[in-house]
Design a protein around this nucleic acid. Structure first.
Lengths: 137, 137
DNA sequence: GTAGATGCAAAGTATTTGCGACAAG
DNA sequence: CTTGTCGCAAATACTTTGCATCTAC
């Protein structure tokens, strides 16, 4: 799993320190979208000496290297997620905070079309749906 | 323009203070998406005694009352925009920071469909496109 | 008159940074 | 070796809050 990230680091000429390896491992294993503090907690279980400043520096580094993405969902805290092959968007349960990942090719297509219409080349996008589970409560 | 916001305040039972009237006016006139500090600067030109705490409290209040929306575009700072009849999304020029508002009914429809598919009722969404102007540079 | 609003400054969060010590290539 | 990284604590940036005072209704 995390060899993936380590490979990308080497490809980008990013120095592979022990701390970065640990953070890479944690992010590879994460099935959710942890914020920096959450990452710090998980990382600390493996190496309690790692400082939160290093976690901040590392996620920023990974983001610039295109290894992880940053999300600014509700709540102010930045949350991170590893980038794999498949791009996807998020459906967020406003009651539970649960996050569902999805892809919809049709929407992707339309987005490009909209950008075109205004004379732009789409380089990135963010789509978040906020919903309430049916039949709940 | 701002009578619109003032009317909504009354409808919601929100007390109409001088400060709130001024902030409402500024937001009504804003054609852009100012952050709190920017609002504070504009508001200060009309009444220099208003504190930034009041601006924070007021935008939050307006947001809860459904009068303005909060955006978390890149950059960490929350930015606000008045809610008018028409909902719209944003196309952001990654080079200039310019923001274009747009609506695409087809995309709106598809979003509902996606939420449905996962058993959710869509209550809100956020769509941001980031693009580069064609033929620029 | 009274509940709620304001200003100010102090307190919180989230994130970044300067610096001397240290480690990867 | 040399350049870049780490840990730590101090510094920033943005936002919220306690409290005494004031004001809209």
């Amino acid at each position: 799993m995390s060899e993936n990230i380590e490979r990308k680091c080497k490809a980008k000429g990013v120095k592979l320190t022990d701390q970065r390896k640990i953070i890479a491992k944690i992010m590879s294993e994460a099935q959710d979208h942890p914020d920096v503090n959450e990452l710090y907690i998980r990382v600390s279980k493996i190496d309690p000496k790692i400082s939160i400043a290093t976690v901040y520096r590392t996620v920023k580094l990974f983001e610039e290297a295109g290894i992880v993405t940053k999300h600014d969902f509700k709540g102010g805290k930045a949350r991170y997620e590893q980038i794999n092959e498949g791009h996807h968007d998020h459906l967020i349960d406003v009651n539970t905070g649960e996050i569902i990942e999805f892809v919809d090719e049709e929407i992707e297509e339309l987005q490009k079309k909209v950008a075109e219409k205004y004379g732009y080349n789409l380089v990135d996008h963010k789509l978040e749906l906020y919903g309430i589970k049916k039949n709940s409560k």
